[in-house]
């Protein structure tokens, strides 16, 4: 709903109409400029990565067995696996816990408690990632180390990230549950289905599109997170073989090595940034598709 349908110039004197037209032109130009930012970002990533990519170096990403950039070895696979393992682990933990939180807010907590709990989730979402990293490094890592040294590990990264993405999962799931038609649940109740059954067999399946898309958005955040992973994961470049082994994520690698990287090494880091962006965009696209294709009334079928 905008004013653009009206031909406002007929109501106004010529000066004001000219101002309006000029404003519209200026704003459209600025909007185009903002959209150009994406082109600029991808362009500069490509440009900086080109010394490696242009000489067929992307094959080194797959072929080389390890990441020894100073010796021209650019095997990126261990870090891709580490990033994916951390993300997957965080989702596996955060999804049930977040979903249970949403069920708590929607169906179990008295209204006042639900509002307080929501506030708490928003508070959790507002804590800076570097603070989560600090907490993980000084509290969680020593705790894991006393059980399974060295402590800084895949597990530590998964636990910290799970906590960080929990609010996203919980709040989007709560919104999806709240959007269900009331008669759906009333109908289930009328059929004599127990409360557990109403939630697990009716409400959650009916809201699954919103829940899945929330989980994918949380995965986007986990995959792109740098500081918390950098601070607790131990940063050894190796395939994630055990929960207690230190790993290095793609994002952490960029943050660690950008300070001193030159030439091909620098190009390799920009190329890994490009790969990271593509992975994240793929996930975001999946999330958007899940919502679009959601069969709203599928539970009735």
């Amino acid at each position: 709903m905008t004013l653009s349908a009206h031909n406002s110039s007929s109501h106004l004197n010529g000066g004001a109409a000219r101002t309006d037209r000029n404003l519209a032109r200026l704003l459209a130009l600025l909007a185009g400029g903002c959209a150009l930012l994406l082109v600029l970002i991808l362009g500069f990533l490509l440009l900086e990565a080109w010394p490696l990519l242009g000489s067929g170096g992307w094959r080194a990403f797959i072929r080389d067995s390890g990441w020894y950039p100073l010796e021209g070895q650019f095997g990126i696979a261990p870090m891709v696996w580490a990033s994916l393992a951390v993300t997957l682990g965080a989702i596996v933990l955060a999804l049930p816990l977040g979903l249970a939180s949403a069920v708590f807010v929607r169906f179990y907590a008295p209204p006042k408690l639900a509002a307080g709990y929501r506030l708490l989730l928003n508070l959790l979402a507002g804590i800076p990632s570097v603070v989560f990293g600090l907490w993980g490094l000084t509290q969680l890592v020593p705790l894991i180390a006393s059980w399974q040294p060295p402590g800084a590990s895949l597990l530590a990264a998964i636990l910290v990230l799970a906590l960080m993405i929990l609010p996203t999962v919980a709040l989007t799931s709560a919104a999806a549950l709240a959007a269900l038609p009331a008669d759906l649940l009333a109908g289930a109740a009328a059929l004599g289905i127990s409360r557990k059954g109403q939630i697990l067999r009716v409400a959650i399946p009916a809201a699954r599109a919103g829940i899945v898309s929330g989980a994918l958005l949380a995965a986007v955040r986990a995959l792109g997170e740098t500081m918390a992973v950098l601070m607790v994961a131990g940063n050894v470049v190796q395939n994630p073989s055990s929960l207690f082994a230190p790993v290095r994520a793609l994002t952490a690698n960029i943050a660690l090595e950008m300070a001193y990287a030159t030439d091909l090494h620098r190009a390799g880091l920009f190329a890994s940034g490009l790969l990271l962006t593509l992975l994240v965009l793929l996930l975001a696209w999946l999330a958007a598709r899940v919502v679009q294709r959601a069969p709203r009334g599928s539970v009735y079928e």
């Binding site: 600029l40 986007v220 792109g224 960029i254 990271l276």
Partner: peptide
């Protein structure tokens, strides 16, 4: 959706 570290690279 672009990760912050990528903004840093850019």
């Amino acid at each position: 959706g672009v990760p912050s570290i990528v903004y840093g690279l850019f």
